Simulated assay, not measured.
Amino acid sequence: MECSDIGYATLACYHPGGEMQRRMIACLCLASVLTFSSGYPRNMYDAVIHQDVTLSWNTLSELDLKNDAVAIRSTEDADVIHLVKGRPEVFPPFDGRVQLLTDGFPSGLVALKMDNVSIQDSGVYMCLVDKPLYIHPGLCHLKVRAPWSAVRKTNKSMGGGMYSLFCETEGYPLAPVVWTGGRGQNLTDWAELTTSITSEQLISVVSRLNVSISSSSSYTCTVTDDRGVSQHATFDFPDKEKSRNHYLFLIAAVLLVGVVVMLLFRYDKLSHRDGTEAQPSSGSSRAPQNPEDHGRAL
């Protein structure tokens, strides 16, 4: 006799002849008590792409590494790993990335270590044990996420004061992109969103907003995941009139500095020339003013 899929539990009972009806009732009573055992630490797992995660099941019965057969499968009927008489067999695409931890077998604990998880690993996993009396320990739900990358921003002038603003980022699962103006007004309805899938199954989003720039303004695009973690980028456009006056002031300041430097250089040059003309030559000697003085000196 087999009792299977009673609630969330799977109970297998094997009996010889005679007392089948009484044992059947016993199986149903046991299943009602142990339906969907929650003895394992968690059944919901939230992992980050490229990190490691360990899924755990508590079978509520002692496991023998050498005699019991254990299998981990996804609910999509994809085999992950089988352990038969202590020998593991791993199936693609999990080969080289998963390991069945057997340290907890004496207490009925089965653990699957998954390395370098990817978005494709997201799903629901079950643990099956080939024993005459076995309670299905429930399902492990694995959700692999990829945090959204820093937003890359670009803008393109379309002429006439019109600009196209672009925000680009990648992550998983899909998250909304919200545009706001400098005064906090929501501009998302005027934005255009384009999505694509990367080689790692991440979602790449490009959000475009067309704006008309006539005065000082700013625009911000923000992407927020389901945990409330945000990435954003801001476009700042200064006031054109103020910017023009600022540039004119800088040009005037540069010209003024140039004139001052030129005047100082010219003044220094003139001073140097006047000093040279006033100094007597080093090779000349003073001649006596009177012949008598010359004779007296002799």
Rank of each mutant, 00 (worst) to 15 (best):
R22Q: 09
D268M: 09
L298M: 08
A146C: 11
R244M: 10
L83R: 03
G7Q: 12
G138E: 03
W190E: 02
G17Y: 05
M158C: 05
G108A: 11
A150Y: 07
R97I: 10
S284M: 13
P137L: 08
F105R: 13
D103V: 13
R87Y: 05
A146R: 13
K143L: 09
V223R: 14
E19K: 15
V254F: 12
V90T: 15
I81M: 08
F36M: 11
P176C: 06
H136E: 03
V70K: 01
L34Y: 11
I72A: 01
E170Y: 10
D293K: 15
G161M: 09
H246R: 14
D121N: 15
N67M: 06
I213W: 10
G17R: 14
N186S: 02
V223E: 02
V70D: 00
D236V: 14
V257I: 12
I6H: 03
I251Y: 07
G171C: 05
F235S: 03
P132T: 04
V98W: 03
E62M: 11
M126T: 09
L60D: 01
F94Y: 15
P238I: 10
A191S: 09
D121Q: 09
I72S: 00
Y14M: 11
L30M: 10
D52K: 13
V110P: 13
L270M: 11
S196N: 06
L139W: 10
C27D: 08
R227E: 06
L256P: 00
D293Y: 12
S32K: 01
G228L: 08
A26N: 00
